[in-house]
Nucleic acid binder design. Sequence first.
DNA 1: TACTTAGTGGGCTCAAATCCCACGACTCGA
DNA 2: TCGAGTCGTGGGATTTGAGCCCACTAAGTA
Lengths: 160, 160
Amino acid sequence: MASADFILGEFNRKIDERFRLSIPTELAEPLCENSTDLILVKERPGCLSLWNSTHWKAKLDAGVNLVKAKINAGRLEGRTADVQMLGRLLSTRHRNVQLAAKQRMLIPEGFREFLGVEAGGEVLIVGAAICVEIWRTDAWLANLEQQMPEFGGLLDTLSS
Amino acid sequence: MASADFILGEFNRKIDERFRLSIPTELAEPLCENSTDLILVKERPGCLSLWNSTHWKAKLDAGVNLVKAKINAGRLEGRTADVQMLGRLLSTRHRNVQLAAKQRMLIPEGFREFLGVEAGGEVLIVGAAICVEIWRTDAWLANLEQQMPEFGGLLDTLSS
DNA sequence: TACTTAGTGGGCTCAAATCCCACGACTCGA
DNA sequence: TCGAGTCGTGGGATTTGAGCCCACTAAGTA
């Protein structure tokens, strides 16, 4: 990964009548270092994340290759169901999207329901260091309430 | 930290119809030693704090840079979710602001609700030794009531 | 009193965010 | 096969808000 800076910042945005969302320049720029190709991922109900596609591929391939190696080595014989589920998730969890002019992207069918925001609704766009997250407002608040107290400890753990 | 003096003093200020707030000269001067760049932080509901950006960076960057270094070294591969959470919290907790002419700053969207003061409302600006705090009046009073009795003991502990 | 300085209000401008419309591809049913 | 409706895409028009600047006022000072 480039020794890039963390992607940080918090913004309010409205979703179009046609489910388009414009990403603020501060976040779009570091995200699209080399291409306007992005990966949209279902994180949890009420939250999607956006990744630079090359970073994402690197991250994903590493994991997938490990699993493949294990399968080939016969080390997942008894775990067929788990492997199936992994495949299923790989299929549905993420998708390529493009940033069009004005940094606009279309939130595809399937991701709309997951995000849970109707056309014309509001979302929060948040920099999450290595990616950008799109939050339904109430999910964001609930999550924040829960995690804010952990902040100090988290920095300690990760940096130690 | 520079062997600067403590930043002290208490002032009433009005927040503009446009959410502008002018920082008293006594507090703004020591805060802006070298630049008009400041960091605005969400401390607790009803209270924001303002930091000299170089001091703040020193305080935070130490930890953050460690995390960055670990990421670049590939040592947090399995901890993506934690890194994301850290970034998310970094994004929402603080933001750069600038002091314009007359030491006026704009309280950004997101911090307004947190402070809980509507346009045209009153706040207290308080020097807190190493930073400046902006308080909603009632939050300030509640806090004061609770902490005042501890003052004597605190001075003893910190100075001994 | 005249002058200076700090705090506040408000006008102007520019850029960004949002609104809105038009076009073309595609689907579906008659 | 054709027309109507839907959806993705592009781009112009409008609005909103942040930054800049100036004017007014009140308080402190010579």
